[in-house]
């Protein structure tokens, strides 16, 4: 029996839930709006690049820019907040308590994504809890006015995707053999050098996975900006959702989605190349061991 036979369930799953929908979106993006509603959502009689030309508007790029900034900053902040959490759970919590901590991390996910995001409206409202606390502490002289702005979207993104960042980092850190840390100390490296030279490189795949996952999810999100961003906090996801749901323009929405996928892939490839170059430079700086 050839080896690939064992891979067919994964392949089938992948094809069904990933390749086929993607194929349809790409196909739709070349179609046009049908003249009559009864003809279905998309007319594929004439295929053209018209939707792409239409999507390449100034507004798309401005919103795309905001999206990249919000998702990028959110991803970096998630990493900065998430790494210490993952590190603490993996390295400082005794083994039998670890799964409980991880569980606590996921518990909020048991309530609806929408509900959790709406809850932030109450917290962030000008007359809300956070505003009151900040004012009574004298930190703010006037009510907090970040609801329905990009700042609120940023906060919501960080809140929602923090576990997505923490989990892969945790898994990578948890798998590090503690005797490697001991060996490093034994060979004369203090805690900081051990962290930089052993822990970090070994956690890098998890960190990288967390960064990519968080970034992609955050960049494609449209629920958080819809709920917390008002009219000022638009993201690309909103544009696409508007085209598909409100304007009933599935072909244009599809073209935007395809462009988003392409641009995201481009950003990730550039980031990956930068990382590889940095690694190579670091290696050159360190010099060969022999």
């Amino acid at each position: 029996m050839p080896r690939w036979v064992m891979a067919w369930p994964a392949l089938a799953w992948w094809t069904f839930f990933f390749i086929i929908p993607l194929f349809w979106i790409i196909l739709y993006s070349f179609g046009s709006r049908p003249s009559a509603v009864a003809a279905g959502p998309v007319s594929l009689e004439v295929l053209s690049f018209d939707n792409y030309w239409q999507a390449l508007s100034e507004i798309f790029f401005r919103v795309f820019q905001i999206t990249m900034r919000t998702a990028g900053l959110g991803t970096i902040l998630c990493a900065l907040l998430g790494f210490p959490v993952a590190y603490a759970i993996a390295m400082h919590v005794p083994q039998r308590w670890r799964s409980i901590f991880v569980f606590l991390l996921i518990v909020p996910y048991w309530t609806s994504f929408l509900l959790r995001t709406f809850a932030w409206r109450i917290i962030l409202a000008p007359q809300g809890t956070l505003s009151d606390i900040l004012q009574s502490l004298g930190i703010l002289g006037r009510p907090l006015l970040i609801l329905d702005t990009n700042a609120a979207v940023q906060l919501g993104i960080i809140y929602n995707y923090l576990p997505v960042m923490v989990l892969p980092i945790y898994v990578a850190l948890e798998r590090i053999d503690t005797s490697l840390i001991k060996a490093s100390m034994d060979l004369g490296a203090g805690p900081l050098r051990t962290f930089l030279q052993v822990t970090m490189p070994l956690a890098a795949p998890g960190l990288f996975g967390g960064l990519v996952l968080t970034f992609i999810l955050a960049a494609g999100d449209y629920v958080v900006p819809t709920i917390l961003g008002g009219t000022k906090g638009l993201m690309v996801g909103n544009l696409i959702a508007t085209q598909i749901l409100a304007s009933q323009n599935l072909p244009l929405g599809s073209a935007m989605a395809v462009m988003l996928i392409g641009l995201l892939a481009g950003v990730l490839i550039v980031a990956g190349l930068l990382l590889m170059t940095a690694q190579r430079l670091l290696g050159l700086l360190r010099g060969a061991p022999l």
Binding site: D177, S179, L180, K182, A183, M185, D186, L187
Partner: peptide, 18 residues
């Protein structure tokens, strides 16, 4: 601390940096 001692260890599972 271990890193301040003039002692080195060969660990049971070797603990080589992968």
């Amino acid at each position: 601390a271990p890193y301040r001692r003039d002692v080195n260890t060969v660990f049971q599972n070797y603990a080589l940096f992968p």
